[in-house]
Design a protein around this nucleic acid. Structure first.
Lengths: 214, 214
DNA sequence: CGTCAACGAAACGCACTCGTATCGATAGAG
DNA sequence: CTCTATCGATACGAGTGCGTTTCGTTGACG
């Protein structure tokens, strides 16, 4: 028994092809089209091969999502606002220029009905939040934010609008959304002078565009 | 020809039963289970009846979602914070005590792939936003919020965290989330003394509970 | 009370997925 | 170079949805 589980063998390549194909199918056709047959077909693999590796479609889906996950690059320039805007802009980019939203929509639906997928969804979300969380706790540590700040709630406030606009409201995500969200949220965090200072910067002045009508 | 299209005929009752069944199926089984056959079965109707009324599954889905839509009760006590908290609490309740989240997840996925459903999704979301939007513009009108306030962005900031926590992060929604979100967002909107004033009211004092640990 | 449109039930052929089984081909290990 | 585990391909019967058609029933309206 070689026990070493050869890092790159024949089986490993097939496995990776299938995982990749699984995500392609999911993004293109959603859960209704996510079938063992169509994944195998797309991977150029045999059904038997897929069944050999995964006991159920959920198991395959979990592995595929896990393999695909890429954490946002960590940033820490020491400038809270710049760090947050950078992270959220990266996130916004993945929401506009990749199949990520389709994957999210399909997986969200599946997670709503399969507990194992639900747990996986929660875990992936937790990982995605980490960079933001680190930036915020660092800011608290150097007293740039009040000590009692609930960093988890702040991450919700920062990240949620991007999902919401893209997946729920079906509006596009303007270039400056990251900056405006960060400004609004940070302004709400600073009791006293910090808010006033920021309220007078050009940043907020630029939002006087009320062309939105009623 | 009675032309009046009897408001409650035999056909009307069947139609309504099918629409109701469509939502039940969608909430229970998601898009993969949303099939003409299973909807008809659940409605105690014949497939032929369903096909007589709707040309495609999407058409049925659009009608079903449209029929189900219930706008949030309109509130206007004149107290901005109270109104927002009331609306968001109602919304939070529908996210925790009804099949609404499952419906949203399934419909979001479908909307991602069918342009007609996407348009519908955007429209329903627009309608859901209206009460919040009205409360905000009223507050601007009576100078409780700055004139340049971007009400649309504020609605994003207010509503998004609820979807996010329930559908993406799979966390539960605490009782006081509505109040805390509103406080954070409002604090970010008020340049100068308004923020300071609110920061000293019992309202924000209540959020000094950082028992969130971490 | 009779008429008739709309109903529910059932059956149809077609296409597809499921999960399993069998087969020859092949790549990697000894 | 040989052996063997794993591969891709293919076939299978059972199950299901599709979209349509047929047929007997029912309920609203004249």
């Amino acid at each position: 028994m070689t026990e070493t589980r050869a890092p790159v063998g024949r089986g490993m390549r097939a496995r990776r092809r299938v995982l990749r194909a699984a995500l392609d199918v999911l993004a293109d056709d959603g859960m209704p089209g996510f079938t063992i047959e169509s994944v195998a077909r797309r991977a150029g693999a045999s059904k038997a091969t897929v069944y050999r590796h995964w006991a159920s479609p959920s198991a395959l889906l979990v592995d595929a999502m896990d393999a695909e996950f890429r954490p946002l690059a960590d940033v820490d320039t020491g400038d809270l606002r710049a760090d947050l805007v950078a992270l959220l802009s990266l996130f916004a980019a993945s929401l506009t220029g990749s199949p990520f939203p389709q994957l999210m929509a399909a997986f969200t639906d599946a997670a709503e009905r399969d507990p194992a997928l639900g747990e996986m969804h929660a875990e992936l979300t937790r990982r995605r939040r980490e960079p933001l969380l680190r930036v915020l706790t660092a800011a608290v540590a150097r007293d740039e934010l009040p000590r009692g700040t609930d960093a988890d709630l702040v991450v919700d406030l920062l990240a949620a609008p991007f999902f919401y606009r893209r997946l729920i409201a079906h509006q596009d995500i303007p270039e400056d959304l990251a900056g405006r969200v960060v400004d609004h949220v940070l302004a709400g965090l600073r009791p006293g002078e910090a808010v006033v200072v920021r309220a007078k910067t050009p940043t907020l002045g630029a939002r006087r565009s009320d062309r939105q009508g009623n």
